[in-house]
Computed example of a mutant assay.
Amino acid sequence: MKKQLLEVRVNGRTHELAIEPNRLLLDALRVDLQLTGSKRGCDDSSCGACTVLVDGTLMLSCTMLAASCEGQEITTVEGITEHGALAAIQKAYRDWCGAQCGFCTPGFMMTVTHLLATNPTPSESEIREALSSNLCRCTGYSQMYGAIKAAIEAEQKGMAIVSWKNIFDPDSGSLFDIHVLGTTAHDWQSFLNYLSTNYEVAYSEDGVPRTVPPIETIFEARRNATPLLQIRMHGYTIDCHFFASDAI
């Protein structure tokens, strides 16, 4: 069968593939792009292990043609976190032992990611309804529900570290300012430690350079100044502003 050129955007990156018209999206992801997080569990859209997001909509990649996704944004489980910063649901799965054999986990994580994006405070019945499209053959649902509830609580308390894909697009080189409205000091200190270890970080208050202090000192400085972290990564500079809550 004659191959055709297909341009797809997956996890924020654009790829050009030469594939057969009948190639399934799951095969394009796993074989052509080596994104093996999405799993083949049934081949008939009944288990949810292959779940991905296509333009923000949950889709089952085992029965979807790759060619039908041209021009659309595809997100796989590899794309919900970047550069070592775990998403809230990933942290919760780890802490609550939400995975047993782990084969179904990527599909569940994509379903939960979509659920929390569209309904940040789902009820118990809404959680169960959302997860009804995914099967766990190990029957480890109790731990999953515990993990999901923990992730929801973490999101509500602002404990999830800023998602890297929202501040740096490696494909286009686009950068965005981070405006910190409020989160816990513990998680921001972890975030700051990660930045300081892996990148060049500079700090200033009202334009005056200073040594990078603990995050609680930065929070305290917001009362009388506008602290600014400047992060050098991949040849670019990202500005991270900290404003007092009444200045927003």
Results as ranks from 00 to 15, higher is better:
Ile152Val: 15
Ser133Phe: 02
Ala150Tyr: 07
Ile152Gly: 00
Lys149Glu: 09
Met159Glu: 15
Glu153Asp: 14
Lys157Ser: 14
Gly98Cys: 11
Lys157Tyr: 10
Pro122Ser: 01
Glu124Ser: 09
His114Val: 05
Glu124Lys: 09
Glu153Tyr: 09
Trp164His: 08
Ala147Met: 10
Leu116Ile: 12
Phe176His: 13
Ala154Asn: 09
Ser133Leu: 10
Thr105Pro: 03
Ser125Glu: 15
Pro122Thr: 02
Asn119Ile: 01
Thr105Asn: 06
Ser174Asp: 14
Glu126Lys: 12
Leu116Thr: 04
Cys138Thr: 02
Asn119Arg: 06
Cys138Met: 05
Leu135His: 02
Ser125Gly: 11
Thr113Asn: 07
Tyr145Phe: 15
Gly182Leu: 10
Arg137Gly: 05
Ser142Glu: 15
Thr121His: 14
Ile152Leu: 03
Glu129Ile: 13
Gly146Arg: 08
Gly140Val: 05
Tyr141Asp: 03
Met144Thr: 07
Lys149Ala: 07
Pro106Glu: 05
Cys97Phe: 15
Glu155Leu: 15
Phe108Thr: 00
Pro170Asp: 11
Tyr141Leu: 06
Lys165Phe: 12
Val162Asn: 07
Pro120His: 07
Thr113Glu: 06
Ala99Leu: 12
Gly98Val: 05
Ile178Pro: 00
Thr105Glu: 02
Ser133His: 04
His114Ala: 14
Glu124Tyr: 02
Ser163Phe: 02
Cys97Pro: 00
Pro122Ile: 00
Phe103Gly: 00
Thr111Val: 11
Glu126Met: 12
Ala147Gln: 03
Cys101Asn: 04
Tyr141Lys: 03
Glu153Ile: 10
Tyr141Pro: 02
His114Arg: 14
Ala99Asp: 05
Lys165Asn: 14
Trp96His: 13
Ala117Val: 09
His114Trp: 14
Gln100Phe: 07
Ser123Tyr: 01
Ser125Cys: 11
Met144Gly: 00
Phe176Gly: 06
Phe108Ala: 01
Pro120Asp: 11
Pro122Glu: 01
Ile152Thr: 09
Ser133Lys: 08
Gly173Phe: 08
Asn119His: 04
Ala147Glu: 05
Leu116His: 04
Gly182Ser: 12
Val112Phe: 03
Gln143Asn: 15
Leu116Pro: 05
Ile161Cys: 01
Phe168Arg: 04
Ala154Gly: 06
Met109Thr: 10
Ala117Gly: 12
Thr111His: 08
Gly98Asp: 06
Gly98Tyr: 06
Val112Gly: 02
Leu116Lys: 06
Trp164Gly: 06
Leu175Phe: 09
Phe108Ile: 12
Ser133Arg: 11
Gly146Ser: 10
Gly102Asn: 11
Val180Trp: 14
Ile167Cys: 07
Asp95Pro: 01
Ala151Lys: 00
Ser123Glu: 02
Ser163Trp: 00
Gln156Cys: 10
Glu155Ser: 13
Phe168His: 11
